[in-house]
Design a protein around this nucleic acid. Sequence first.
DNA 1: CCTAGGTGGCGTCATAATCG
DNA 2: CGATTATGACGCCACCTAGG
Length: 110
Amino acid sequence: MAATAELLEPATGDIPAYQLRSPNSGLAQSIVMAASPSSMESPSSQHAEEITRKREVRLMKNREAARECRRKKKEYVKCLENRVAVLENQNKTLIEELKALKDIYCHKAE
DNA sequence: CCTAGGTGGCGTCATAATCG
DNA sequence: CGATTATGACGCCACCTAGG
């Protein structure tokens, strides 16, 4: 199931699906905003634009933070799974060792 | 085929944790 | 202590698969 993300990448080049899909957020909109001529706008609309821009920046940062957070979490889980495997092996080995020692001890007692 | 259910990834919001 | 960052929770979408 690990290939899902890759499969989701559309045939539209480097832009991931989620950036194309999301209707009201993302890079496309902020680029449009930045391109609009702000010099001939009223102070209030400039202020609104500033608020919108700040929101876009905040959302973009949080989007990246969430992605990073998920990546770290997956890595952590993988580490735990590795550790489980190692400990299971150790456990198996120790059980075998104990069994062998018991055998030796029993034969000595005879 | 079709479809219901499961899975994984994403963006967003709310809020906890950390930083300066 | 306010600003910034990290994370849990939620809802959405795309994909896969077993079963009808």
